[in-house]
Design a protein around this nucleic acid. Structure first.
Length: 590
RNA sequence: GGAGCCAUGGUGUAGAGGCCCAACACGCCUGCCUGUCACGCAGGAGAACACGGGUUCGAAUCCCGUUGGCUCCGCCA
């Protein structure tokens, strides 16, 4: 039999208990130390590393083979496992107290010199890593991340199966929908001129499955969105997709909280404080200036609009009169920030649409600020009181439309949290954000859009405002947030077809369009639709946080670059004219 | 669509207008070495400095553009 298949032990599992046994290990040459008269080879397999030693005096043939071995060759080594002399223990290896005395060795497969070493904490250009992803994945941390991913997937599957969820697959070739992200399209050969779309999520089909009576559905499913990438966003990504019937929002949130906390605890060994913090969207925006606040530090925002609305400072007063907000942030001991640090913060706020960042620095000789002179003694007192300002503090302000003021100062808060070292990297602070606004006005298209998606149920008490004041309508929607990342989001769905039609009308879909795009759902809702709701988690992002990585590509075996390319396979790539012809497609120049 | 940062042997870096037909470390090749473990020692090969223009007597270095990468804004129901 081929030596490679005679393996009797995994490298990383060898220890003193097996001393005396004759073993055959198979794996890659991780390191090679040739002392001239003695060769040490570290052999690595999926379990770990163990040292083999070759002595020309006792095992000349094996030594000759070891002499030929080079890094990353695949080799098989047989021999007795011996205890090392205590003086030669290697404390850096779990198997460092033993070694295989190589009496028989075979080179199974040779390797060209590698473009980079198989070592962790190597800082290699990511394009090179992705081009040679098979080598990159040999690195122990990458291996661990991919194995962690498998464990997490199994945990979720087991948890949901134990709670009577049924795993159901939905098609990847489905139809394009008008709302939401840009679709990836797949041309139909059998129906030229028509296209499938890859799913942005199985949203409609999982609702249909509720109408079909499954009551508890889940799927760990690939989703596709043709939008620009980010450190935590890939064009194809994996969701834990969940839908339930007859389960209150509260009950669903409790169950999901148990699942995610269990996942982090059992797979990541990470303790999670429960119950998770719950904030309404309004509270989150007001206090942290974000709908996915990082709660590892406090540094809250304060709405000071009412204090400054009558002030002589026109920038603030005008914003207040026009219905905007003036948001303030107290930075304890921030008065010592330098001019250039302030400039950085101002530029940061500007990225998020703020027109400026006003400041008051409370030095030892009193408050200093170019805007202080515009405020009366009383206004100053109220301002300091509202913010709890003390000597040494820096007060920052953004005045703008509510959302811009909140977001811009919220991002300043985040930057300061990082800059001032307020973030404990070991903390995992989960939160639920609830009561999102149902609609958001799209300035470009001059219409109201669903903030979540158009199948989200509005809160009953807000239904009367659907037509008259859509900005007041809140949705039965909820996001799960962790350390500033949105890790999941869902909602209770509309199960009354007439409400569904009102929502479609509100977002500017004509009855004909609604019927054409979503008719099957509206029709299905007429055949006994149960109250239902669900949630979807971004599995890759969850993994990224679980593995403590800063980038989603680290937990995906074959990810894409910022331009959507895969340097390994060369995708995307042009196709043959023949393929285009079969699809009756023609490329345009612009 | 916009902005910032980056690009030098296989890999990581040094280089700040003449010191550079480019240096160092790791890797690779050759030789020596019997207890190494990031083995050590000696020697060697390997780069038209991403690409295209320009400025200059002279450009890896300065300027413009292109390409690619990363990050962010917009976008992502």
């Amino acid at each position: 039999m081929d030596a490679a298949y005679r393996r009797t032990a995994l490298c990383g599992t060898l220890g003193k208990t097996q001393v005396g046994e004759t073993v055959t290990i198979v794996g890659w040459v991780h390191r090679r130390r040739d002392l001239g008269g003695l060769i040490f080879i570290e052999v690595r397999d999926r379990s770990g590393i163990v040292q083999a030693v070759f002595n020309p005096q006792t095992d000349a043939a094996a030594y000759q083979v070891a002499d030929q071995m080079r890094l990353e060759y695949v080799v098989a080594v047989s021999g007795v496992l011996v205890a090392r002399d205590p003086q030669t223990y290697n404390p850096h290896l779990p198997t460092g107290e033993v070694e295989v005395r190589g009496t028989d060795a075979v080179i199974v497969s040779r390797s060209k010199p590698l473009p980079f070493g198989i070592d962790d904490d190597l800082n290699i250009d990511e394009t090179v890593r992705l081009r040679y992803r098979y080598l990159d994945l040999r690195r122990p941390t990458m291996h661990e991340s991919i194995v962690l991913r498998a464990k997490a997937m199994k945990y979720v599957r087991d948890f949901l199966t134990q709670h009577d969820f049924v795993e159901i697959e939905t098609p990847l070739l489905t139809r394009s929908t008008p709302e939401g992200a840009r679709d990836f399209l797949v041309p139909s050969r059998l129906q030229p001129g028509s296209f499938y779309a890859l799913p942005q999520s199985p949203q409609l089909l999982k609702q249909i499955l509720m109408i079909s009576g499954f009551e508890r559905y889940f799927q760990i499913v690939r989703c596709f969105r043709d939008e620009d990438l980010r450190a935590d966003r890939q064009p194809e990504f994996t969701q834990i997709d969940i839908e339930t019937s007859f389960l209150s929002q509260q009950a669903l949130m409790d169950l999901m909280e148990a699942m995610i906390a269990g996942l982090f605890e059992s797979v990541g060994g990470i303790h999670c404080e429960r119950p998770f913090v719950r904030l309404t969207w309004d509270e989150a925006m007001n206090r942290y200036g974000s709908d996915k606040p990082d709660l590892r530090f406090e540094l809250p925002l304060t709405d000071v609009t009412s204090i400054v609305s009558q002030s002589a400072f026109q920038v603030f007063a005008k914003v207040a009169q026009q219905g905007g907000r003036v948001m303030g942030l107290r930075v304890p001991q921030g008065a010592r920030l330098t001019r250039s640090e302030m400039d950085d913060l101002t530029a940061h706020a500007a990225t998020y649409g703020a027109k400026g960042l006003a400041w008051i620095a409370w030095q030892s000789d009193g408050p200093h600020s170019p805007i202080l002179k515009f405020f009366t003694q009383q206004e100053q007192k109220d301002l300091f009181g509202a913010l709890g300002a003390q000597e040494g503090d820096l007060l920052l302000f953004v005045a703008d439309q509510r959302r811009i003021a909140q977001t811009a100062l919220g991002q300043v808060r985040l930057k300061l949290g990082q800059q001032l070292g307020l973030i404990d990297e070991h903390l995992y602070r989960f939160a639920w954000i609830t009561d999102f606004p149902m609609f958001e006005y799209n300035d470009e298209e001059k219409r109201w859009e669903a903030e979540h998606h158009p199948f989200t149920a509005p809160r009953e008490e807000d239904l009367p405002y659907l037509e008259s004041a859509p900005e007041r309508v809140r949705a039965k929607a909820y996001d799960m947030v962790l350390n500033g990342y949105e890790i999941g989001g869902g909602s209770q769905r509309i199960y009354d077809p007439s409400v569904q039609e009102r929502i479609f009308a509100r977002i500017g879909l004509t009855p004909e369009e609604a019927h054409d795009k979503f008719g099957f759902l509206v029709e299905a809702l007429q055949y006994g639709a149960p109250p239902h709701g669900g949630i979807a988690f971004g599995f890759d992002r969850l993994l990224m946080l679980l593995a403590g990585k800063e980038n989603i590509r680290e937990v995906i075996a074959f990810p894409k670059t910022a331009s959507g390319a895969d340097p390994l396979t060369g995708a995307p790539a042009p196709v043959d004219e023949k393929q285009l012809r079969e699809l009756r497609l023609q490329l345009r120049r612009t």
